Amino acid sequence: MARRPEREQKDERESEIVDKLVAINRVAKVVKGGKNFGFAALVVVGDEKGRAGFGHGKAREVPEAIRKASEEAKKNMVRVPLREGRTLHHNGSGRWGAGKVVLRSAPPGTGLIAGGPMRAVFEVLGIRDVVAKSLGSSNPYNMVRATFEALKEQVSPRQIAAKRSLKVADVLSRRKDGASSLESAEG
């Protein structure tokens, strides 16, 4: 009897997961009788509460490629700490191949200022306020991977406090004290 509730809980978690198709690519293999066509899909999935992942799937039919990519993305989900559940804790940058991205936290009401593949990642993550810029390659695969590299760098004040054996309030107050001491030194 204990197995049934577990299965229902798993179904509930999976029903909360949102997936977005980022790119679909038709590929052809030239053979003796002509061309064999296949499809490659790039999908990002997330729970809109700080967890997201991406996956790549290839198949002869589009729906099958999307299904494979979604399954891989669900296996590769990572947690990203969000400030107030709407933005990043600090600025960050990521790089994958020739794709470079810069992410900046933003005040409430800014919205999602990001293009293409990065926007899809932020939407499934549940980020509502962020400013992002893509530099270098516009290849969706590299942009998504670079975005995830930048998101992996995100650290919350709670994680910093745990590493330093401090209280969260001490970490936050030190940050404010450091900024005010810099301002007084300049003035």
Results as ranks from 00 to 15, higher is better:
121 V>Y: 06
90 H>R: 03
41 A>C: 02
119 R>I: 00
126 G>W: 10
60 R>S: 13
85 G>E: 11
96 W>S: 11
168 V>Q: 11
38 G>Q: 14
75 K>V: 09
133 K>Y: 08
26 R>L: 01
64 E>K: 07
86 R>Y: 04
87 T>L: 09
178 G>Q: 11
108 P>D: 06
129 D>W: 08
158 R>D: 08
183 E>Q: 15
36 N>I: 15
169 A>K: 13
26 R>S: 11
148 F>I: 05
174 R>P: 04
6 E>V: 09
110 T>N: 09
184 S>T: 15
74 K>H: 05
39 F>C: 09
34 G>S: 08
59 A>R: 10
81 P>D: 02
169 A>E: 15
67 R>D: 10
106 A>E: 09
161 A>K: 13
106 A>P: 05
102 V>E: 13
50 G>K: 10
26 R>Y: 02
71 E>A: 12
144 V>N: 03
27 V>I: 15
15 S>C: 01
151 L>M: 03
27 V>E: 13
84 E>V: 01
176 K>D: 13
78 V>W: 00
178 G>T: 09
11 D>I: 14
148 F>G: 00
131 V>H: 04
14 E>Y: 06
148 F>N: 02
102 V>I: 15
164 R>W: 12
63 P>N: 10
152 K>S: 08
91 N>M: 05
44 V>Q: 02
181 S>A: 11
158 R>I: 05
177 D>M: 13
65 A>S: 06
113 I>M: 10
181 S>K: 15
24 I>Y: 07
176 K>H: 04
182 L>R: 14
62 V>I: 15
183 E>W: 10
141 Y>E: 10
78 V>Q: 06
40 A>I: 15
131 V>D: 07
99 G>F: 02
7 R>F: 03
81 P>R: 02
127 I>T: 13
43 V>T: 09
151 L>N: 06
172 L>R: 10
94 G>V: 02
129 D>P: 14
20 K>D: 01
88 L>G: 09
78 V>N: 02
145 R>V: 01
182 L>W: 11
128 R>Y: 04
26 R>M: 12
114 A>R: 03
102 V>R: 13
117 P>T: 06
135 L>T: 00
43 V>F: 07
23 A>T: 04
21 L>G: 00
